[in-house]
């Protein structure tokens, strides 16, 4: 049914480390709080996007991973941005910021819900942030699985990249909850590109876990 699709670049952020296309490009200090680590990545790579500071932890993590990822390839130049999809999954949905919103409404005498917090209580906002930053208007889907699901990703990309509407995809997994975080974002195209890694369950498993 489908020709092979390829992982043409990837970015992985976890345990205080940033890996970009097989290469470690940044390492934070030991025992750095997650929020401070993300800020240090933002600053280290001289990112200039003041909206970053308004984002919740989950969106910050997705944002810095997408910034680094899209620097290493030219997909936003190569393709019509209406035809680039964003397909991301996670495990804990937006529970990190949900807990914060809940803390503003639990006490009847200290009731202060804020729209600036509440707006982030949907996991797909992270797709919105990447879309806005890069003017990407294609298909978007946020899936929730207990763990990263490479079988589904392989299968769904075969479907998606065979649609007439989609040429390339920004994909992966971004999760942030209870001080644990992991971002694994990658680009999928129909041609091999520089990395030339086939978009298969096996390769996704290997990149995600190594």
């Amino acid at each position: 049914m489908s020709d092979m699709n390829y992982i043409t670049s990837y970015c992985k952020i976890e345990s205080g480390k940033v890996v970009l296309n097989n290469e470690e490009v940044f390492r934070g200090g030991e025992n750095v709080a997650e929020a401070d680590f993300m800020k240090s990545v933002y600053k280290h790579f001289k990112t200039d996007y003041p909206k970053f500071y308004k984002m919740d932890n989950l969106c910050k993590l997705a944002f810095i991973a997408s910034e680094l990822l899209l620097k290493t390839n030219n997909i936003t130049e190569k393709y019509n941005r209406d035809r680039i999809a964003i397909v991301i999954s996670n495990s804990a949905s937006s529970l990190d910021i949900d807990t914060e919103h809940q803390s503003t409404i639990s006490d009847k005498d200290n009731f202060f819900p804020s729209p600036a917090v509440f707006v982030y209580t949907l996991p797909n906002i992270l797709i919105g942030e990447i879309a806005i930053r890069n003017s990407i208007k294609g298909e978007n889907s946020l899936f929730i699985f207990e763990n990263f699901n490479p079988e589904f990703m392989e299968n769904y990309h075969n479907i998606l990249l065979n649609l007439k509407t989609t040429d390339a995809c920004i994909s992966g997994y971004v999760d942030f909850y209870e001080h644990k975080y992991k971002a694994f974002l990658y680009t999928v195209e129909k041609t091999p590109g520089v990395l030339a890694i086939e978009h298969t369950t096996e390769n996704l498993n290997q990149l995600f876990n190594k």
Binding site: I86, I125, I136, K137, K164, T165
Partner: peptide, 29 residues
């Protein structure tokens, strides 16, 4: 089909171009 406005996280597009894209792609499919 789905699409994104790439405009604002909590406000709809001022032009409707994102929804238009989803509708056009749907009718085409």
């Amino acid at each position: 089909s789905s699409s994104n406005d790439a405009n604002h996280i909590s406000g709809p597009s001022r032009t409707g171009d994102g929804l238009l894209l989803a509708i056009s792609n749907t009718l085409e499919e």
